[in-house]
Design a protein around this nucleic acid. Sequence first.
RNA 1: GCGCGGUUAGCUCAGCUGGAUAGAGCGUUGGCCUCCGGAGCCAAAGGCCACAGGUUCGAAUCCUGUACCGCGCGCCA
Length: 458
Amino acid sequence: MVIDYSSPNVAKRMHIAHLRSTVIGGAIDSLHRYLGWRVIADNHIGDWGTPFGKLIVAWNGWRDDAHFAEDPLGELQRLYESFKGKAAEEPALEDLARAETAKLQAGDPVNRALWQRFVEISLAEFDQLYARLGIRFDVVHGESFYADELTELVDELIEKGIAEVEETGAVVVRFDPSEGKGLGKSPMLVRKKDGAALYATTDLATVRNRIRTWSPQQIVYVTDLRQKLHFRQVFAGARRWGWGETAFEHVTFGILRFPDGALMSSRGGRVIRLAEVLDAARDRALELVRAKSQDLSDQEQQAVAEAVGVAAVRYFDLSQNPSSDITFDWDRSLALDGNTAPYLMYAHARCRSILRKARNTTLGPLRLEDDVERQLALLASRTPEAIQMAAASWRPNLLCEHLYALAQQTARFYEQCPVLREGVPDDVRASRLALVRATAVSLSEGMKILGIQPVERM
RNA sequence: GCGCGGUUAGCUCAGCUGGAUAGAGCGUUGGCCUCCGGAGCCAAAGGCCACAGGUUCGAAUCCUGUACCGCGCGCCA
């Protein structure tokens, strides 16, 4: 299975709307790896096209070297955004940008070098965030990777009769209504009248390359639902090409909004940086760790705070059904109590605490006499089922829900079923200890799939 | 106009391959540490599941329609 997720654009900072694809995609990725799939995670970054012409114009025209030295990506983003403002007043800039884009695509060494630098700066920052989030890709083939084969690909589409040339010179793929509801009225443009390719073209080239390279059973895309039509077209185009052996899946998720309903997007201007949210989450967690866990060393406190903070942010996103829009709220996404990642981590840490203290006690066969422990055993035993359900329906939130129920039951068990206290008969103790261990394993395996790092103490 | 989503408690959301009195968190109110970790536990209040039909022994869940909200629909990605 090839899975395509995260896919940020170069020269822009990742903001929390990017978190959705990254975190949901990452969870779907690890769910399938856990179930034995061979998964190739491919980060299809936006590193090509007209934005770079604009960026080069802005770079040459009005860059701030001092700002660039201290915050490279911030300066690139500022330049890109300022281009829009200036171009609105001075339309000639758009022509300049087109010219710079053309030069870049033709291989002009100066523009190529600049582009290379922009990409490297962006990737460096993305990698830092991926490291914090525990995300790893097998390959990073951005759009530029396919740039050289697009002309040939469109020519071949025309040759095979898949696409047709219009009078203007533009090339489109026209669909029959039988290829999908509504597709008959929505042709897919693969070449502009000026000869340039578009993102549908790149996506077709990407499909072709993935099939040639890995012959996957399945190719999965994780993007927001606004791209639904686009991918339906790409998939229908791919089937025309004869790539129907491969199953295509578009996992969509809803839009991130502010509480007042405003959209969060680079376009709208109102964004919250992902790094800023992760930092805030870590800081809030650190405050709590310092108050609650004074027995941990300063270094351990820092590590736990980072794990707890990142997990809280991830879980906020993962625990909601991908298909619905979500509202970003600082307090809720950074919450450390209630239905949150720290709650799962806490339940796990309490199990670990018992197991540490019980080092020399033997684990026995299960004797489930109390209703609370019976329920706990039942829930723990259903974890594999929850993992399968979550994978099959592309909904990591199902696993979140299961783990939360398991953690809740763990807390009840902890209150009501003593394990190591005096007076607990040996056979009951041995049974409960085995149950605690099974629970700890279920929780930690499940959390790891969700990218939540279980800790021994917190 | 066509297409795709959505509408469940004060707020944020689960539950959607149909199944028992519709769940959780937050918030509100009231309890629980001589006891393995209180980032916790117990309890209460709070819902004609947008509306109207249909299918079914049974519908928040499936079908049809309506209303409202959001998104998308060739030369950006």
